[in-house]
Design a protein around this nucleic acid. Structure first.
Lengths: 137, 137
DNA sequence: TTACCGATTACGAATTTCGTAACTCGGCTT
DNA sequence: AAGCCGAGTTACGAAATTCGTAATCGGTAA
């Protein structure tokens, strides 16, 4: 993970479709080197995946979930990751245990998710934040 | 946004490098159709960007920030987005105003960010959660 | 110096993307 | 009913990118 790697990652974060040839030109090396390094970064797990960020709905939100103490948060979050409109499930430290990041069509869809979470036996409480604006680092 | 669009998005979310030809085969249409639709989805803003999810450090965290009432959260979050290791800056509803999602090398780096936020005149308080596990929806 | 190893570069082949023109199929007008 | 329009789809050759692989380079240890 040297400076060259970091520059490549920065470019890919901004646009993951940037051709290796173009990245190479920008960072001053050859296509093959970029290809090798990206491949290595994927193997090492530094690049977790090539993906798209979407806004299918008009509404993003975080749902912070507290589960009962005797519950396996791991399996709960695994199940929640399969729920519709859920982008990420984080197990977190702090007052709450799990954070869902969701991208939904409207407030109704968000509310459905909250309801679904609250209906879950292991879930003790939820706290929802609407994401009013997103800025990429 | 019909079923075909959604299937294309699902495939791209899983691997944004999937060739149009392969997507076409999977969803049962032609390369050109996939190309047209992806192009349209980008124009419509449904696809915000092609990107990579990384784990450059060993530590992800959320830093929840409360700012003073008379402050322009917009410009504050804009500045924070430029800070090193910051992946997203969200303006959110709820008790806190801004949430930083960070990907740092270690706890020291996270602490630096927290310190930096707290030193900010407009910042009243911060609350940090470590992201112990991430699952993609 | 020589040998060696990983990283980089070079280059032709395979694959994908891209530009564009033709085609299909509802719906609409006359 | 015939004709037409337009959005979406398909077809296909050209350009660009990716890929496989072999040669080269640079630093290091013996």
């Amino acid at each position: 993970m040297d400076e060259l790697d970091r520059r490549i990652l920065d470019i890919l974060r901004r646009d993951a479709r940037t051709p290796n040839t173009e990245i190479a030109a920008e960072v001053g090396t050859s296509e093959g080197t970029v290809r090798n390094r990206v491949e290595r970064l994927v193997e090492e797990g530094v690049i977790e995946r090539f993906t798209i960020s979407t806004r299918t709905g008009n509404l993003k939100a975080m749902i912070e979930v507290t589960v009962a103490v005797d519950v396996d948060t791991h399996s709960v979050s695994e199940r929640m990751a399969d729920w519709k409109d859920v982008d990420f499930v984080w197990q977190v430290s702090g007052e709450e245990d799990i954070v869902l990041v969701v991208d939904a069509a409207d407030t109704r869809a968000v509310n459905e998710l909250i309801t679904r979470a609250r209906e879950h036996d292991d879930v003790k409480s939820t706290k929802t934040r609407l994401i009013l604006d997103e800025r990429l680092g």
